[in-house]
Nucleic acid binder design. Sequence first.
DNA 1: GAATGTGAAGGTTTTCACAGCA
DNA 2: TGCTGTGAAAACCTTCACATTC
Lengths: 218, 218
Amino acid sequence: MISESSKRKISESTIHRLSLYYRVLSVLEKENKETVSSKELAKREKLTPAQVRKDLSFFGSFGTRGLGYPVMELKRQIGDILGLNRTWNVALIGVGNIGSALVGYKEFQRQGFQIRIIFDNDQRKIGSNHKGIQVADIGNLEKELKESKIEIVVIAVPATVAQYIVDDVVKAGIKAILNFAPVNLKVPEDVFLRNENMSMELEYLSFALINLQNGKRA
Amino acid sequence: MISESSKRKISESTIHRLSLYYRVLSVLEKENKETVSSKELAKREKLTPAQVRKDLSFFGSFGTRGLGYPVMELKRQIGDILGLNRTWNVALIGVGNIGSALVGYKEFQRQGFQIRIIFDNDQRKIGSNHKGIQVADIGNLEKELKESKIEIVVIAVPATVAQYIVDDVVKAGIKAILNFAPVNLKVPEDVFLRNENMSMELEYLSFALINLQNGKRA
DNA sequence: GAATGTGAAGGTTTTCACAGCA
DNA sequence: TGCTGTGAAAACCTTCACATTC
């Protein structure tokens, strides 16, 4: 929860960088480092120390002048801000190519994103188990989402049907959706929608190889 | 190839938006639309018309005043800029969870990114075929990359070994790398490295649910 | 009349630079 | 002395608004 600072507008990039800091802090914790400076944190994610300090300062004063930031404490704080010190009930819709990969993706579980139920329209898959998770009929979407107390829905269906699916998901009252289909989905104002566009970075590389002189850019 | 405009700095966001325009133009082409206005293009990807025009103007004057942009022609132009009107020889390293999903991901092929060879260190997989693509021994990386004339390498190995792998990939002379491992990799200045962080957007949703009032943000 | 292309304005994000504190 | 926290400056990106062209 953001304390008094919620008035100031916090940018998307700042939040994304918090994810990076969190990741680095997890590593530092394993390395038994007690404190870390903004300089070190910056170096590990190719940012500037000033950037790190500014990002953190939006949420509070976590550091000690002359010393740096306490690793464990800062990790906990960022975890609180990002909601990683708890678990989230996630549903996955579509268990094809991408979908199955996500079910086995350890990183999600590690961060508290638990896939509780999978939906598909393939009768051969419905009723079965996919890596220990129940595959339900997409026809029972609303009922099952409610029963499983789902908070976040991940969409991994073909682009052609994604909008219909997302409409049903919204109707079921879900307020947070992560979309892997390569299409721009329409949702009401009060629903959070984020897109994961898997070919965008590949296209950037392609652009870079053709047009840019020399490499590197995070 | 960027014509005279290569002096002006083109931002990363502009390139990412070109990817979006390209996607919309493909749809419009299928719908047999001949021309499209910046307004329509903007609406389909939730941007502003001015943004669309500015983005395109970095690369040339593709439109006709009073009329809009010719769909087919603009798609071809953006394809040229992004390098999508050709094929790229891609190698995939690591055919676990994420790796196998990428092999079957149609969107990549459709855009000309052809996975020619797969590397793994699992003796049971080496020598076999994965969806029709040869799985080679990671030990022969340099030799095989050269023989297959690979231009882009996709890394889908565990975070713990990713840096070692990427070092070898760089040694083999590869200049473009897409990294799916949740770790920041070090590469020389002249190598393009992009990261695909699959949990970042999920973390943003988590943050949004806890901290933000009402939804939506592309 | 309709819609592009683009300088100028406005807004946002990053970096600088230093005061302040352990 | 070392490093944070933060206003101010600089850099960057987006939107406005209008002259221009079809």
